Computed example of a mutant assay.
Amino acid sequence: MKQFRGALLLTITALIWGTAFVAQSLGMDHLGPFAFNGVRNFIAALALLPVLLFMQRKAPKKTQTDEERKQSRKTLWVGGVLCGSALAVASNLQQFGISFTTVGKAGFLTALYIVIVPILGLFLKKRVPATVWVSVVIAAAGTYLLSVQEGFTIAPGDLLVILCALGFSVHILIIDHFSPMVNGVALSCVQFFVCGILCTAAALFTETFTLADILKSAGPLLFTGLMSSGVGYTLQILGQKDTPPAVASLIMSLESVFAALSGWLVLGQSMNGRELLGCVLVFAAVILAQIPLEALKKEKAVKKTA
C-alpha cells in the first residue's frame, strides 16, 4: 500500500506539472525567468506555512533530547538548502532554455532525467533492477515520439535544457536522501524559500520588473506557485519516501503525457498517431517499472522449497 500511495502521489504530481505549461507561458509575458521563478516559489512557501503549523499541532509529541532536536533541525536546513539550490538551478536553466529552443525539444530534453537518475544512482551505489533499465529505454523513446516534432540538433538552447535535466536529476536524488529523515512538508517549505531567495536575488541584478508586472502575472503566478510548486513538489517529496528514485523519475515523466492531453482537452490541440504511440510507450514504461519481478521470483522460489 505504501508503494501504491507513493506512485499515486507522484502521478498526481506529473498531472499538475503537465497542466502548468500554459500558466508558465502566460506568466513569462510580463516577467523574466528569474523574477517569475522567485515570486512563484515565495507563494509556494507561504502557502505551505499554515499547512506545516497545522500538521505540527496535530502530530503526537516526540520525546527527543536537545541534541536530537538540534540534529533534526540541522538535517532539515541542510536538505532544504541543497534541494532549493538544485531546484533554482534546474528551473532557471529550463526557463532560459525554452527561450532559445522549441517546446517540443525542451519537453524531451527535460525528460532526460529519467535516463540520468539511474545512471547517477550507480555512483551512489544504488542498485537498479533490469526492468527499470528497460523502462528507461521505453520511456525515452515514448517521450521522443510525444515531444519532438522536427529535426533533432544540439543548439545552445538545447544544451541549457540538457543541463536542466541534470539539475532535476540531482534534485530527485537529494530528495531521495533527505525525505526519509525529515518532515516532507517542512523540507518542501524550506526549499521554496531558498529557491525564492536565490531567484529573486538573480532577478534584482539581471532583470527589470515592477509590482505592476507581478500583478499582471497574478493568475499564472498563483497557479504555478500554489499548484505546480506548492502542491506538486510537496507531493513529490511525500511520494518519493516510498518510491525508488529511478521509478519516481519514470512516473514523473508522465508530465509530458499529461501536457499533451491537457493541450488536447483544454486548448483543442489534437494528437496524431505518433504522439498517441508516445503516450502508450510512456505509460507502458511506468507500468513495467512498477512490477516487482524480483520479489515475485523470490516468492516463487520460497514456495518451491516449502
Rank of each mutant, 00 (worst) to 15 (best):
A301N: 12
V302I: 12
K58F: 08
N272F: 05
T243Y: 06
T19F: 12
S72W: 13
V22C: 00
L254E: 08
P292N: 08
V136F: 04
G151T: 07
L31E: 00
Y233A: 03
E207W: 06
Q236L: 06
V266Y: 12
G263Y: 10
F209G: 00
A90Q: 07
I237T: 14
H177I: 13
C83M: 14
P180V: 07
T75S: 15
H171C: 00
I172Y: 05
M28W: 01
W77D: 02
T210P: 04
G18E: 05
I287Y: 12
A111L: 07
L166A: 11
A285E: 03
R69Y: 09
L10I: 07
N41Y: 11
L267E: 12
E294G: 04
L166G: 10
T19A: 15
K62E: 15
D66E: 14
A23S: 12
T13A: 09
G27R: 06
V194G: 06
K70W: 15
L82P: 00
D213C: 11
A59K: 13
G268H: 10
T63R: 10
I119R: 11
A141H: 03
L122N: 09
T13G: 02
S229P: 00
A44T: 03
P33L: 06
L204T: 10
K216M: 12
L120A: 13
F168V: 10
S256W: 08
L93Y: 01
S249Q: 06
P220L: 02
P50Y: 09
L9N: 07
L53P: 05
T19H: 05
L198K: 07
V137D: 07
D66T: 14
E294S: 14
I12P: 12
K58A: 13
C279N: 06
G184S: 14
F36G: 09
G80Y: 02
E150D: 14
I98G: 03
F96D: 02
P33F: 02
T101I: 00
L112Y: 01
T11P: 08
R127Q: 13
T210V: 02
M227T: 02
L146E: 09
L122R: 15
S135A: 13
W17M: 06
I214R: 08
C83V: 09
L211E: 12
K216D: 08
I154G: 08
N92C: 08
A202H: 03
I154T: 07
V231Q: 06
R127P: 00
K2C: 00
A155N: 14
L160A: 05
M271C: 09
I138G: 03
P180H: 09
F54N: 11
L250N: 00
A295S: 14
A284I: 04
Q64G: 08
F4P: 08
S25K: 14
A301M: 13
G167V: 04
S85T: 15
Q56L: 13
A295Q: 14
G32R: 10
Q56I: 07
L9A: 11
I16P: 11
L235H: 02
A259L: 11
L93K: 04
